[in-house]
Design a protein around this nucleic acid. Sequence first.
DNA 1: TTAATTCCTACTTTTAAGATAGGAATTCGG
DNA 2: CCGAATTCCTATCTTAAAAGTAGGAATTAA
Lengths: 149, 149
Amino acid sequence: MMVSTKGRYALIVMIDLAANQGEGYVSLSDIAGRQMLSMKYLENVVSILNKGGLLASLRGKNGGYRLAKKPEEYTINEILNLTEGSLAPVECIKNGDLNCDKAASCMTLPLWVGLDRAIEKYLSSVTLDDVICGRRKTMLGDWCTECKE
Amino acid sequence: MMVSTKGRYALIVMIDLAANQGEGYVSLSDIAGRQMLSMKYLENVVSILNKGGLLASLRGKNGGYRLAKKPEEYTINEILNLTEGSLAPVECIKNGDLNCDKAASCMTLPLWVGLDRAIEKYLSSVTLDDVICGRRKTMLGDWCTECKE
DNA sequence: TTAATTCCTACTTTTAAGATAGGAATTCGG
DNA sequence: CCGAATTCCTATCTTAAAAGTAGGAATTAA
């Protein structure tokens, strides 16, 4: 499985915030309650989002989190890349640099680079707002033809 | 990391076979020796390829493995899907069926389905022969512009 | 001042990946 | 027929990563 709970929960939190934030901040216990997830575990996830600048936070009573920008300004790629660390399909292309000594002669490397790009291209083409609205614009055309049935 | 050693080693074995098989069969110890991999571990990987019909095998002395068809007739998708079990980015779309009770109301599901398709589309566009020849035809155009430099 | 919250560090548990081991079954060549 | 080389099968061990928990310090609003 390529996307762990960290990335999936992060997306859920972002969606929940978009739906439930008004002018103020939304507390983690509210989100955890609504989404039926462990608040303690969400703390870990949200901390990554917050440090990465995707969220704004307020400590203390009535504190909580809110989106740092508008839903249409987040790509899914930036959310998942941040929380997962990297979405690279294999170790050797993790940091952009090809950190493998056999890279020059590796027959499979171009394949992994191509796959990495295909993934990035797709995830960069979808915004948080697209997901929330169930919008279906991507390079593949409809991204969920099942939903039409 | 999305592709485990199983899938990566499987690819390496397929490439090695394409390069080294003549009329006869190639033994695992030969492949393991050339590729500097544990033969015992390769046994597990190759067993999947063999059961899946991607390889033909001959037991006993002078036995070994060979490709069941021509390199250009394998897509990378079929090799990786078989050895990895599934390349689905998340659990809930693993078997084509959406085996999650919240599927109907899940906002992120279409995203995962779309991602799954983007991956499948890319990996189906590349054949084993493409990888061996370093050929660069895919939906993304060149799949390794780095290689040109 | 108190209650609610984020924030930080560390730990535990669980699961999957990666790797190894031993031996049965098969096949070829002498 | 025999022995060496091999696939094939099942079971096990090891290691690393994911998933989840715990406790308490720092902060803030009412």
